[in-house]
Simulated scan of single mutants.
Amino acid sequence: MELNGKQVLVLIDLYQERRLLWDSSDSQHKLKNQRHDSLTEIAVSFEVDKNEIERKWKNFTSHFWREKKKEAETKRTWSGADEPYVSKWFAYQPINFLGDKNKPSKTQDSTKRK
């Protein structure tokens, strides 16, 4: 399955609308049937198999995290202090909603007494 640029952006939008597919804090994320149904809806809209959509999405997210890592490395090491790395991948900004999904949530200190 080959996607043109416009189709890639549509796929990203469809995923973003279905938070349960990518956000582990979503209450329905652990419901396998709900995730399956959401992926099937996306696959039907592209007239392909659900597994094909999953494979494409994995490729896109891998590409996104590689780009994100490059940005972070140039900021951290100052190796590109004059010109930090900025992704030129056309889908980087649209898929950037994934950037916050792995941030740790605030925790409470259970050792403090009330």
Rank of each mutant, 00 (worst) to 15 (best):
V86Y: 05
K75G: 08
S62R: 04
L98Y: 07
L14I: 03
W22Q: 02
S24W: 09
L39H: 04
K101F: 01
K112C: 07
K56T: 12
E47C: 05
W22V: 01
S24Y: 07
L3M: 02
S87T: 03
V8A: 03
Q93S: 12
K103N: 15
D26E: 04
T111R: 15
V86F: 01
E52K: 10
S24P: 01
N4E: 12
K70G: 01
E52T: 13
L11H: 04
Q108T: 03
K58D: 14
R76P: 00
E67S: 06
V44N: 14
S105D: 12
K30L: 04
P104N: 06
K30E: 14
Q28M: 13
K75I: 09
D13C: 07
M1F: 11
Q34T: 13
R113G: 03
S62W: 12
A43T: 05
G5S: 14
D26V: 06
S45Q: 15
P94L: 05
T107V: 15
S79E: 11
T107M: 06
D13W: 04
F46I: 02
A43R: 08
W57M: 13
L21C: 11
T74N: 05
Q28H: 08
K101S: 08
Q108V: 14
H36E: 10
L39E: 07
A91R: 04
N51A: 14
D100C: 05
D23A: 03
H36G: 00
E73Y: 08
L39R: 02
M1W: 07
L3P: 05
G5N: 15
T74F: 08
Y15V: 04
K56S: 13
S79Y: 04
P104L: 14
D26Y: 11
Q93C: 04
R66C: 10
L31K: 15
I42C: 09
E2R: 07
N33E: 15
E17C: 12
R113H: 08
L9H: 01
A72S: 14
R35L: 02
I42T: 09
S27F: 07
I53R: 00
I53H: 00
E83M: 02
K112H: 09
T61R: 15
R35K: 09
W78R: 14
N96F: 11
H36Q: 13
K6C: 06
R35W: 01
V44E: 13
N4A: 03
L11G: 04
D49A: 11
E52H: 10
V10M: 11
S110D: 04
L21H: 05
T111D: 13
W65R: 10
S87I: 01
T77H: 05
W22K: 03
L11A: 03
I95R: 02
S25P: 00
E73T: 07
D49W: 00
L11K: 02
D37Q: 11
E17W: 01
K112N: 12
F97S: 03
K103R: 15
N4V: 06
N33A: 15
W65A: 01
G80E: 15
K88F: 00
E54N: 08
W89L: 00
I12H: 01
N33K: 14
G99F: 08
L31G: 00
A81H: 08
I42D: 10
R55T: 12
D49K: 09
H63Y: 09
F64C: 02
K88E: 11
S27L: 07
W89Y: 05
A91T: 08
D82S: 13
S27D: 09
E52M: 04
K58E: 15
N33S: 15
